[in-house]
Write a protein that binds this DNA or RNA. Structure first.
Length: 225
DNA sequence: TGCCAGGCCGGGT
DNA sequence: ACCCGGCATGGC
């Protein structure tokens, strides 16, 4: 009988063999990672890159400058990322929060414990569970397992969770059964996204060529996934 | 062409 | 406590 830890590591190893190291986050520096985390909410990463490029060109990957920047101007710059109006507010909320409470000093903000950091991030309107964990793991480089729709779908298909497990339950599955290793959490989530993007989308539920196909798999998948 | 993408919030039951 | 609509662009 395999333990949960063994199953999780098997999946990880299979993905890692197939895709190799992912070396996430695909962005430059902690502030850009944070911005990307907000912009990618329910949005294709390709669109996010354009939005970030617009900010880069104007040298706006800078807390002080972003604090000054008019929300409507920010919205125009991030338009390609979709939901540009709400996302402009969310970015502003986050930047303003760090500016007010930590003097705009990301390093100082990131000195908080994982628990405190998560609490602080979640107190910002527009930052939910996943965005908070993205920031903790990929910007602050501290161990917080990130759960997203791909994680949910893949874990459900491999019978490691049940349909009504919520975010925190799925997060706990990983965090309670894996060592709290930043590199491992980083790679694991990145690899799940690689599987999700390439082989486990809504539109190809059979996952014929999925590298995880040999592993325990639910043949009868809910249609709405 | 219509559906999907690395969520989150607020208002209504 | 759940459930749902709104938010929006670009790619396939």
């Amino acid at each position: 009988m395999k333990t949960t830890t063994q199953k999780l590591m098997e999946l990880y190893n299979a993905m890692h063999r197939f895709f190799g190291p992912q070396a996430w986050w695909p962005g430059d520096g902690p502030l850009e990672v944070m911005i990307g985390a907000v912009l990618t909410q329910n949005t294709n990463w390709k669109n996010v890159e354009r939005a970030i490029d617009n900010l880069r060109k104007k040298n706006l990957i800078d807390i002080e400058k972003l604090v000054q920047l008019d929300t409507n101007e920010l919205a125009e710059l991030i338009r390609p990322a979709g939901y540009f109006s709400v996302k402009a507010k969310r970015l502003k909320n986050l930047i303003h929060f760090i500016h007010e409470n930590y003097g705009g000093d990301l390093q100082r903000f990131f000195e908080l414990s994982v628990t405190q950091l998560r609490e602080e991030l979640l107190s910002v309107n527009g930052i939910g569970y996943e965005t908070a964990d993205d920031i903790i793991l990929y910007a602050a480089c501290k161990p917080a397992f990130v759960v997203d729709t791909y994680t949910y779908r893949i874990m459900l298909r491999h019978l490691l969770i049940s349909q009504d497990d919520d975010y925190m339950a799925i997060k706990a599955l990983f965090e309670d059964n894996l060592p709290a290793d930043v590199e491992l959490f980083n790679e694991y989530h990145a690899l799940l996204v690689a599987v999700g993007k390439n082989y486990c989308k809504k539109t190809n539920p059979l996952c014929e060529k999925c590298p995880l196909n040999p592993y325990e798999h639910d043949p009868n998948l809910p249609e709405y996934l």
